[in-house]
Design a binder for these strands. Structure first.
Length: 275
DNA sequence: ACAGGATCCTGGGGGC
DNA sequence: TGCCCCCAGGATCCTG
């Protein structure tokens, strides 16, 4: 579910609600997340004050006062919200961090593809990202490195955009939206792009993600911001989930194909396969 | 190197 | 109402 704009929105929402607050308790459900929460982490985060709330790719990073890093990934259906401790607990809440001021940070995730883990310090966190080959942030991508990354791969553009090692934070919605804005077919190979096309794609990614952040992300089903509210960018999707509707640019009917194992929406006229 | 499929899960929607 | 099948903002692992 959540891609960079949704994660960024959550981070911005949570920042004023979490910074300066102390974690005074941790409760984990018995259901395992993608990477299981370790009991030893309870004591490590309890008593810690949150100093910063940051995002890297689709990862949410909480800097704790003693240097530890509490890191969460929302997977497909993850929700991270701060609520009054008295608020009734919903189904599928798998982690609860009690906060001072009678608040709770709750991690809810029905499909449990999300994860939460604790690193001893910033260095260990960076090692984790490096081990996973997490790519650069999509804003201010190096033009030459980007062009080279495309030029050296025979994979299709959809697969390239979904690969977090190439650029961090893009998922299925924003891959399709970016390719539409760049007027590139999702099935074209990276290496067949001209320099101008590669540049167009790089700029389209940043433009689309910025617009989506400004609209507080896309809610298709489960996504909510740090306060539990839906996003608004789904109303601005040009092609994602719009198969059968007219292209907003030319009016030709939007199509959907399975590319790189994912539903891929595009305008067959604006995004021709050849050229 | 890369495509495609299966996997981890739950829930919603469509067809019958 | 119910059942069955397919699909879903992610990521990883395996096969060919």
């Amino acid at each position: 579910m959540p891609e960079l704009p949704e994660v960024e929105t959550v981070v911005r929402d949570l920042r004023p609600l979490l910074v300066g607050r102390k974690i005074n308790a941790v409760r984990a459900s018995k259901h395992k997340l993608r990477s299981p929460w370790k009991a030893a982490w309870n004591a490590q985060v309890t008593g810690q004050t949150v100093d910063r709330v940051e995002r890297r790719g689709k990862w949410i990073v909480l800097d704790l006062r003693d240097g530890k890093r509490l890191v969460l990934h929302l997977g497909m259906t993850g929700q991270l919200t701060v609520v009054d401790a008295a608020q009734p607990r919903q189904d599928h809440v798998h982690l609860i961090f009690g906060l001072d001021g009678e608040k709770e940070l709750r991690f809810r995730d029905s499909r449990r593809f999300g994860s939460a883990r604790v690193f001893p310090d910033q260095e260990a966190l960076e090692e984790f990202f490096e081990a996973n080959k997490l790519g650069p942030e999509p804003f201010g991508l190096d033009p030459t490195a980007w062009r080279d990354a495309l030029a050296r791969t025979a994979r299709n553009l959809k697969a390239v955009l979904l690969d977090q090692r190439v650029v961090a934070g893009v998922g299925n919605i924003y891959a399709d939206e970016s390719l539409f804005v760049a007027r590139l077919h999702p099935g074209r190979q990276g290496k067949e792009l001209t320099a101008a096309e590669a540049t167009r794609l790089r700029k389209a990614i940043a433009e689309v993600l910025e617009q989506a952040i400004a609209s507080r992300g896309s809610t298709i089903r489960d996504y909510v911001d740090g306060s539990g509210e839906a996003g608004g960018y789904q109303n601005s999707h040009r092609v994602y989930d719009r198969a059968g509707e007219p292209c907003p640019r030319c009016g030709v009917v939007i199509e959907v194909l399975r590319i790189a194992g994912r539903s891929s929406h595009f305008c067959p006229s604006c995004q021709p396969r050849g050229d």
